[in-house]
Design a binder for these strands. Structure first.
Length: 259
DNA sequence: ATGCCTCAGCTCCTGAGA
């Protein structure tokens, strides 16, 4: 089973790339469940039929201009939850469903903008809410895959310039404490567990030649229940789409789990 | 340089992203 996450930075702009990735690319054509972030589309404008015609089941939850998430599956999905039941959020950031025996969660964590800003305060509250919700979920039976754009690096190994970017957004101790706090719930970072050397990135700034110079961050993650550890066989970042014409600034991240 | 790109929209500039 292959699960993937991709922040597409506007599904309106990236629709053809997403469909082509799912149908033709070596990685995407084997994806069973894909979660998207930053679709930036209200539900009435979501290109629902483009996916159903291609044979997918899906659920989506969005708003105009900002945020917006979707869960796209080649298998039946059930028990869809939009946002976190315990957190009244005006922004469309979380979608989850039961699929292939897993609770798959696609999440667009807040950016936070600047550690001194109100948006950072919101990010911290949102992270506390995620911890609270996952505490309840992990007490229930199914294994969990929490995937998405976390907007947090784990440590220096996820940062192209850890000295220059020390204590900037995505790299503060406060954000990282929240991220590591999720591991107390029995989750682990699939990518790091297979790539302990780090320095592999999932996002590159559009500015300053971020992509050609490999000046990136690893902020898109797949966290799995520890019970899935024996089934994990691969976790990779598919950098190929980042080199497309009009690319998203994020690359897809995927895991393979044994049946 | 509080910028550098890219995207959306109360759209030809501005706010936000990360």
């Amino acid at each position: 089973m292959r699960l993937a996450t991709w922040n597409v930075n506007s599904l309106n702009v990236r629709l053809e790339q997403v469909l082509a990735w799912l149908s033709d690319s070596p990685v995407g054509s084997s994806v069973d469940v894909l979660v998207l972030q930053e679709t930036k589309l209200s539900d009435d404008l979501f290109p629902f039929q483009a996916f159903t015609r291609a044979g997918f089941e899906l659920s989506f939850f969005g708003q105009k201009t900002y945020n917006g998430v979707a869960l796209i599956s080649r298998h039946p999905i059930s028990s869809v939850i939009k946002n976190m039941p315990t957190f009244d959020d005006p922004m469309a950031r979380v979608i989850s469903a039961q699929v292939l025996g897993l609770r798959v969660i696609g999440a667009y964590f807040p950016n936070g903008q600047d550690p001194q800003s109100d948006k950072f305060v919101y990010k911290m509250k949102w992270l506390s809410a995620m911890h609270e919700w996952l505490t309840a979920l992990t007490l229930q039976a199914p294994p969990i895959a929490l995937m998405g754009d976390f907007n947090i690096t784990w440590d220096a190994a996820d940062v192209w310039d850890p000295v220059g970017l020390k204590d900037t957004i995505h790299c503060t101790d406060e954000e990282r404490a929240h991220l590591k706090g999720l591991m107390e719930l029995g989750l682990f970072d699939a990518h790091r567990s297979l790539h302990p050397e780090g320095k592999l990135f999932s996002w590159w700034d559009y500015r300053e030649g971020g992509w050609p110079r490999n000046k990136g961050l690893r902020i898109d993650h797949i966290l799995l229940s520890t019970g899935l550890k024996d089934r994990l066989v691969a976790c990779e970042i598919d950098t190929e789409p980042r080199g497309h014409e009009r690319p998203s600034d994020h690359a897809p991240v995927w895991v393979d789990l044994k049946d």
